[in-house]
Design a protein around this nucleic acid. Structure first.
Lengths: 228, 228
DNA sequence: AACCATTGCATATTCGAATGTATTGATAAC
DNA sequence: GTTATCAATACATTCGAATATGCAATGGTT
């Protein structure tokens, strides 16, 4: 038995923890990220913190300004618009691809993911919007379902792009929910999406996905307008 | 007149120099990147080198393996396939968007960019494939043209994604050319693309772009097969 | 009062040394 | 002859201190 098969670096660990903290609403959009504070929080030196921040900024979760440090990417209307449009355009195409390539195993995958999601209480179904653990669980199930839908596209590159975009969208969703905004139709939309995929109707499925993303955007816009 | 308007950090400067060195064929795909060597080459400490590499690895130009360092991303058939498919799917859609949104100013932009490209000698037109300066110039004009075509899409996010993909594709093109592979139809394809854009024919333009990208892929495949 | 320069402070950035991890090559055991 | 063990080396990783930069407050000048 090997003692340590493949240990990650501290920087990777910190980057992941930090990503989780941002996505988990423990670090607020627009909040300044100072090295002294972060280094103590994660128990590492500034160099490691810096490397983690560099990575996250390249992924768009934090924003860097030379000689002025880092902050959690602020949520803005313009960014939400661009993000939504990019998702509409890319995800709908990738979904079509996935439906065409998907085999029976894939069908099983999306049915399973949908089942888990449908059994995970969302804020629309009465879970407390301020219960972080509950929201984390739903966000994870939601991300897993969307990823499963696209997973049969067979292109790691496309998956990576979609994942990056989805992650940022999850950030908007998270903060929107914590303010009480809820997409009551989400569950129905998820189900419709599943049906179209299983029926092998690429165009209809893509349209359903577009509806879902657009609708989510609408809800988030209310949040930003309200939160300023 | 301000004395120092906005100085970048060393890490940013090194990252850009390194990107240029990779894209400029001065660092070979698969080549190991060692800190001692790089730090001396760019005249900075290992910390800065590390930050630059972290960024580049997130963009896919270099590959990181924990505790084993970094290397220039190796060129593989599988990667080329995924990359090409992603470009086909995304760029054609973004192009349609760009054509729909583009105004007269945009038309001027793409005409200008095409003019520059057409006047920059490519290896297909007799420039020496081993003349790095000449190849850099053509690659830059080529990238500028493709970027101009899509620039009217009005979505910084999409532009950023396309840029990342294009940059990596340029890496394949660069090495393919240096081995004597030449896309003789490129100039004609670029012209056809321009015509369709000016005529406001989104579908035809997108198809022309798909042709162009596919054709380029074909040429690069020969390179990889040959170079192993 | 409004504007510009200066100083002091908080913080980001950079460095070089200290530490930890993989790999290589040699030697011993099977 | 093959596999296992163990140094020795080369290197990536991490640290904490040293430096440079931006910002806010202060004081002086028009």
């Amino acid at each position: 038995m090997k003692s340590s098969p493949a240990k990650d670096t501290m920087a990777i660990a910190v980057r992941d923890k930090m990503r989780a903290d941002i996505l988990g609403a423990r670090l607020k959009p627009g909040q300044r990220l100072m090295f002294a504070e972060l280094s103590e929080r994660y128990g590492v030196s500034v160099g490691v913190t810096r490397e983690a921040l560099t990575w996250l900024s390249s992924q768009g979760l934090v924003k860097a300004t030379a000689h002025q440090g880092y902050m959690v990417t602020p949520l803005t209307m313009a960014e939400l618009d661009a993000l939504t449009e990019a998702r509409l355009l890319i995800e709908s195409e990738v979904l079509k691809l996935s439906i065409r390539n998907g085999d029976t195993e894939w069908e099983g995958l999306i049915i399973a993911a949908h089942h888990v999601l449908s059994r995970t209480p969302s804020s629309a179904e009465g879970s407390d919007p301020n219960d972080d653990a509950a929201q984390d669980a739903w966000a994870e199930a939601h991300a897993a379902y969307h990823e499963a839908l696209l997973s049969a596209c067979g292109n790691p590159r496309l998956m990576q792009i979609v994942r990056t975009l989805s992650e940022e969208a999850a950030l908007y969703r998270r903060w929107s929910i914590s303010l009480g905004h809820i997409n009551h139709q989400a569950a129905a939309e998820h189900r419709a999406l599943l049906e179209h995929c299983l029926a092998r109707e690429p165009e209809e499925a893509a349209e359903a996905l577009r509806q879902h993303v657009s609708h989510t955007r609408q809800m988030l816009m209310e949040y930003i307008t309200e939160a300023q």
